[in-house]
């Protein structure tokens, strides 16, 4: 399943990442996963939150440039070789990964990999055929 992600533009200025998270904290929005990409000049923070469109509106109200992007959240066992299996499946189907980040679910001994790529629907299909599960937004918050 597809998952919505927030991409937020951050200029190279002290405290901007903090301000982003504070806007979400004030409105009781929990961050499930986060990745920060930085260049010499600016940064992009990517967030997975429960209520994406509400978070997006709130951040825009606070003058942030925000885009909602679609990604997939792949659930794998937290054991060696699992991520390689996911990437091999994508590779064999000539699907290119733009970027990815991951977090671990200690309670269930699972790991979740967030992947941004083109042809998301096809990717979900080929992963499913290999028995690899992609999570919905709701499942990310179970």
């Amino acid at each position: 399943m597809k998952v919505q992600q927030l991409s937020i533009f951050l200029e190279n200025k002290l405290g901007r990442l903090l301000e982003t998270t504070e806007v979400l904290a004030q409105h009781d929005i929990n961050i499930r996963a986060m990745s920060l990409a930085e260049t010499k000049n600016f940064g992009i923070v990517r967030l997975i939150v429960e209520n994406t469109s509400r978070a997006c509106d709130l951040l825009r109200m606070h003058n942030f440039t925000v885009e909602i992007t679609e990604v997939i959240a792949v659930e794998v066992n937290d054991t060696p070789g699992e991520l390689a299996r996911v990437l091999r499946t994508l590779h064999e189907n000539e699907l290119n990964v733009e970027y990815a980040y991951a977090f671990v679910e200690r309670k269930q001994n699972k790991a979740v990999v967030i992947i941004r790529m083109d042809q998301i629907d096809r990717a979900i299909g080929v992963l499913k055929a290999e028995g690899i599960k992609t999570l919905t937004q709701q499942e990310l918050y179970l």
């Binding site: 991409s7 533009f9 200029e11 990409a37 260049t39 000049n41 600016f42 992009i44 990517r46 440039t65 925000v66 885009e67 992007t69 733009e98 941004r116």
Partner: peptide, 15 residues
């Protein structure tokens, strides 16, 4: 200023 028309989630496009 980067508005939503020119913003991209991809670093290389912005660069």
């Amino acid at each position: 200023e980067v508005n939503e028309d020119i913003f991209s989630d991809e670093i290389k496009k912005l660069e």
